[in-house]
């Protein structure tokens, strides 16, 4: 090896080594600001807020449909319990499992888990979305195993100490300047305005999710099963709830198959399934209750939370877990 080649090789090694060092340093600095992440707009904020709220009796988890649909104050008042909503836009079952593991690791034992879930949540499996939880992976063995099972693509991202703060730098810096730590804030955000007035786009229309007739993901069901089983084994009650869409057409066969799979896994693992949607409650055919076809507005969320509270209260009084849903609703009516 010539002197020049050796020098260049050393330079390349030095460049990479310094990058690793800077990555660790930046990760450490940003980690020190993590408490300033906003729980209403970032998954990291939701995680920080959840682990900082030791008083919760009920933990609500799920995607934007949990985040915007389940009003914790209203649910808490109806149940007489402290409710914490940690629903996050764009997240799913893997993230829910991550939050569950995180709160347990911090000594928080919710009596009840409410997991807002839709058919499309088990028709895809995108665990890399839960990479946002990688700051806490040491406390999340099941989530860690799920992510690491995704191959080198995810492993590379897990290796970085700074990547876990992707898209958060400005938020952390601004909130730090304002002196606004997330503390035990909730993730719940109500949506104002109804369909036709709001600026929401047509994304999330059920037909768009299911028109390609995707099949149920066994990996998603496995994570769902693990979530329910772990909670039941820990002595908690689990309510898997499905909510309404403003549907433009019939329920597709692939969607029904996914809903059946959710019901089966929930039941097998000892959880309760509650269905409160446009098929069980025709009132949710009203566009005035929706912000966009997939999200209820403030008025719709209040109505939905109220119905849900009654169903959860009934479920808590009833010792054996079982599948509830459309049949019971149709029989009982609302």
């Amino acid at each position: 090896m010539s002197v020049q080649t050796g020098g260049r090789a050393a330079r390349v090694v030095g460049f990479v080594a310094l990058f690793a060092l800077l990555d660790a340093g930046l990760g450490s600095v940003l980690g020190g600001l993590a408490e300033y992440a906003d729980p209403k707009s970032s998954p990291l904020g939701a995680l920080e807020a959840a682990k900082a709220n030791p008083d919760m009796d009920v933990l609500v988890l799920g995607s934007s449909r949990a985040n915007h649909h389940i009003d914790p104050d209203l649910l808490g008042a109806r149940l007489g319990m402290a409710v914490h909503n940690a629903g996050v836009d764009g997240q799913g079952i893997v993230f829910a499992r991550a939050v569950q593991e995180l709160v347990w690791a911090n000594g928080i034992r919710p009596q009840v888990f409410v997991l807002q879930l839709q058919a499309f949540d088990v028709m895809t499996f995108e665990p890399e979305r839960a990479l946002v939880a990688s700051r806490f992976l040491e406390s999340m063995p099941a989530t860690r195993a799920t992510l690491e099972g995704e191959g080198y693509n995810v492993k590379v991202k897990l290796t970085s100490r700074s990547f876990r703060y992707n898209s958060l730098v400005l938020q952390l810096a601004l909130n730090r300047l304002r002196g606004q730590p997330a503390a035990a804030q909730d993730s719940y955000v109500s949506l104002d305005g109804s369909l036709g007035e709001s600026t929401a786009g047509p994304e999330g229309v059920p037909g768009r999710w299911t028109s390609d007739a995707r099949e149920v993901s066994p990996e998603s069901l496995r994570v769902l099963g693990g979530f329910v089983r772990a909670a039941v084994e820990a002595g908690s009650q689990v309510f898997v709830v499905t909510g309404p869409f403003l549907r433009g057409g019939p329920v597709l066969p692939s969607e029904s198959a996914a809903a059946d799979a959710i019901a089966r896994v929930t039941s097998e693992e000892g959880g309760h399934l509650i269905t409160v949607d446009e098929t069980t409650h025709p009132i949710f055919d009203d566009p005035a209750l929706f912000y966009d076809p997939s999200h209820l507005n403030r008025q719709g969320a209040a109505l939905y939370t109220g119905i849900l509270a009654e169903r959860i209260a009934a479920g808590l009084d009833r010792a054996p877990a079982g599948v509830e849903g459309a049949a019971a609703e149709q029989a009982g009516g609302t």
């Binding site: 460049f15 310094l18 990058f19 700074s162 703060y165 992707n166 898209s167």
Partner: peptide, 18 residues
Amino acid sequence: RWGIWYFLMFSIVLFGVD
């Protein structure tokens, strides 16, 4: 030189859309 390349790299890591 290195500072500039690191700046771009960490901008991608921290500000890039994944």
